[in-house]
Each structure stands twice: as structure tokens, then as C-alpha cells.
């Protein structure tokens, strides 16, 4: 416990927490984008979209050792806790950093900082807002956008992304996410002390490839639906999911 409080009280410890939670969220994004791409793989013979099946799988994963939804909720709690911790430590650090330079420069010129690095707080805030929006939109169906039916993922997506404004909004946010990831993914290796001059180039490359992969993967979905490339959803019996 002592070690944890020591860690939490130091800036390097806070950065460590930001890095580890960031890594968890990065892992989530990789899973999420992989799941999303199932919208492109079509449906089963019975007419159930693969993505809906995948959604169902997430709800029942762990059975019979775990009750239904348990694994999903554990994941959700870990993820929400990660987001919360990520935000808390970063905000604490940001306040500290503001205090570290009480009088600013009249002229200031950056030599190395990327826009991605300088805009981390901005991109982060936007992503935080987006997470709330996205949960309300597709998880809870609480927003008046398109039709919403629990479990009918393909249909919900199709219906929402018919609206080009919503689709474009998603694409833009993915761009911002890209910025956040580009700096964050490399940065977390540096913070964890895994980076070194021999590995630096490969880690930078990894950050770029992962970022492009995630951004493109996510953006493909709204773009494809918006441009009408995707087939219309077909009604199916929800009982087909619970076999």
C-alpha cells in the first residue's frame, strides 16, 4: 500500500498510471475496431448480421463459469475505471504544470513538440465528451438519432449513419482520436521506460501504424454507411441470437 501511495504522489507515478490506463484503453480500441469490422463480413445463413452475433457473444462470454453479462460488466468497469483514472491523473498533472510556469513567455517558439503532443488535453477532452455521447448513442440508445433497438447493432448503425452529419462527426472525432493516439501510444513506452535509442524508431513506427489502423478501421464504418455502400438491415428473430 505504501508503494502505491508513493507512486500516486509522484508525477512519474501519475504518468505511469496514465500510461497503464492508456494502454488498457488502447487495447480496448484494438478489440473494438476488430469487432466493428464485422459489419463488413455480412450475415449468417439465418440472416443474423455477424456484428450482432459478436455483440451477443460479448454478453454471454464466460458462461457457464460466469453468469450472463458478468464478463462484459467486469470489462466495462475496468474500462470506465481506466478512463476515470486516466482523466484524474492527467488533470492533476495539468494543474501542476500550469503552476510550474506562473509567468509565461511573450514570444514562444516550439522546436520539436508535435501538434499531437501539444493538443493532448484538447483531444483528450473531446474524446471524453465523445465517450459519453457514444455510450448514450449506441449503448443506451438515449439520443434521438436514428432508430434504436437493443442488440440489433447492424440496424442501429445503419439507421444512425444515414445521417451524414452524424457520420462526419464520428469521422472527425476519429481523426482527433488519431492525434491523441499518435502521441499517447509512443509516449506510454517512454513513460514506462521501455523506450530506448535502439527501440525508439520501431516504437514510433508502431505508434504510427497502430494509430492509422485504428483511425481507418473506425472511420470505414460511418463512411461506408453514409455513402450507401452497405446493404440495408434485414429483420430477423432475436431468438436466433440466444441459442
Amino acid at each position: 500500500m505504501n508503494r502505491i501511495t508513493t507512486l500516486y504522489s509522484s508525477t512519474i507515478g501519475k504518468k505511469f498510471i496514465a500510461a497503464v490506463t492508456g494502454l488498457i484503453l488502447f487495447g480496448f480500441l484494438v478489440g473494438h475496431v476488430a469487432g466493428n469490422l464485422k459489419v463488413f463480413t455480412g450475415s449468417t445463413e439465418a440472416g443474423v448480421p455477424h456484428v450482432d452475433e459478436y455483440g451477443h457473444f460479448l454478453r454471454i462470454v464466460g458462461e457457464p463459469f460466469l453468469p450472463k453479462m458478468a464478463a462484459l460488466w467486469i470489462a466495462r468497469i475496468v474500462l470506465l475505471a481506466s478512463v476515470a483514472l486516466h482523466i484524474v491523473v492527467v488533470v492533476q498533472l495539468a494543474f501542476r504544470n500550469l503552476e510550474a510556469r506562473p509567468v509565461g513567455y511573450v514570444r514562444s517558439k516550439k522546436s520539436a513538440s508535435t501538434l499531437a503532443a501539444l493538443w493532448m488535453m484538447f483531444s483528450g477532452s473531446l474524446i471524453a465528451f465523445f465517450i459519453v455521447f457514444h455510450l448514450l448513442h449506441f449503448t443506451l440508445g438515449a439520443l434521438p438519432i436514428g432508430e434504436f433497438q437493443h442488440g440489433a447493432i447492424y440496424k442501429n448503425i445503419y439507421s444512425s449513419f444515414q445521417n451524414p452529419l452524424i457520420s462526419l462527426f464520428y469521422v472527425v472525432v476519429m481523426g482527433v482520436l488519431g492525434f491523441h493516439l499518435y502521441h499517447g501510444v509512443w509516449s506510454l513506452f517512454q513513460t514506462l521506460g521501455i523506450d530506448n535509442p535502439d527501440r525508439n524508431k520501431s516504437l514510433r513506427m508502431f505508434a504510427i501504424i497502430a494509430t492509422i489502423g485504428i483511425v481507418v478501421g473506425f472511420s470505414l464504418v460511418p463512411l461506408s454507411f453514409m455513402t450507401g455502400m452497405m446493404p440495408e438491415p434485414i429483420a430477423y428473430d432475436p431468438a436466433l441470437l440466444s441459442h
Binding site: T11, I12, L93, R96, N97, T114, A117, L118, Q190
Partner: peptide, 8 residues
């Protein structure tokens, strides 16, 4: 302040 890996 804390390091945010700007490399500045």
C-alpha cells in the same frame, strides 16, 4: 512540472 514527452 511533469514530463509529457514533448521532446522540446
Amino acid at each position: 512540472g511533469s514530463c509529457r514527452n514533448y521532446a522540446e
